[in-house]
């Protein structure tokens, strides 16, 4: 077994849209000591099926157990592991940042460079909507931090496999 890596993995889990299914998945992770970095759930095109995107951490042995244990849950239809696969990943963040008269221009410049949008404007704060992969969001947060972040909310990663070209 490979115990050398402890990297992030994105799992896409299709589940029966039943009451309690989120508790089953979350309980599995906590009960077995697995790690959840982020988790997002919503219906798919088929209303009876939901898709959970779970970002987890662990070596390949742990990842194998996570996938097997997820598959063992009766409500889990399919587990897709994006490790080593081509996929597109996005995350949405809403960031409420200090925008005093002296740094408003800088905030707007950042917004422009990162191609995000200001979606709410107040006398002291702007709320910025940003989508991108983890790296992009991290970079934006780093740059904007000195101006003062009041609040932030992130969806966690979403992912889909890439179509072969």
């Amino acid at each position: 077994m490979n115990h050398s890596t402890n990297e992030k993995h994105i799992l896409s889990v299709l589940v029966e849209n039943q009451p309690g299914v989120l508790a089953r998945v979350a309980g599995l992770f906590s009960g077995r000591g697995f790690n959840i970095e982020s988790l997002s759930v919503a219906e798919t095109t088929e209303p009876r099926v939901s898709r959970m995107t779970i970002v987890t951490k662990g070596d390949m042995g742990v990842l194998e157990q996570i996938k097997k244990q997820l598959n063992k849950l009766v409500d889990v239809i399919k587990v897709v592991d994006f490790t080593g696969k081509e996929s597109v990943q996005r995350e949405l963040a809403l960031i409420k940042v200090h925008a005093r008269p002296e740094n408003r221009a800088e905030v707007l410049r950042m917004v422009d460079i990162f191609r995000c949008r200001v979606i709410d404007v107040g006398t002291e704060y702007y709320t910025v909507e940003l989508t991108g992969d983890e790296g992009k969001i991290g970079a934006f947060l780093n740059l904007i931090k000195p101006m003062g972040i009041k609040e932030i909310v992130r969806t966690g990663a979403l992912a889909l496999g890439r179509e072969l070209k």
Binding site: M1, G61, E64, Q65, K68, N71, K72
Partner: peptide
């Protein structure tokens, strides 16, 4: 019969 039993504890 349970795939999760395999390689859970021993290689």
């Amino acid at each position: 019969i349970d795939p999760s039993s395999i390689r859970k504890n021993v290689p």
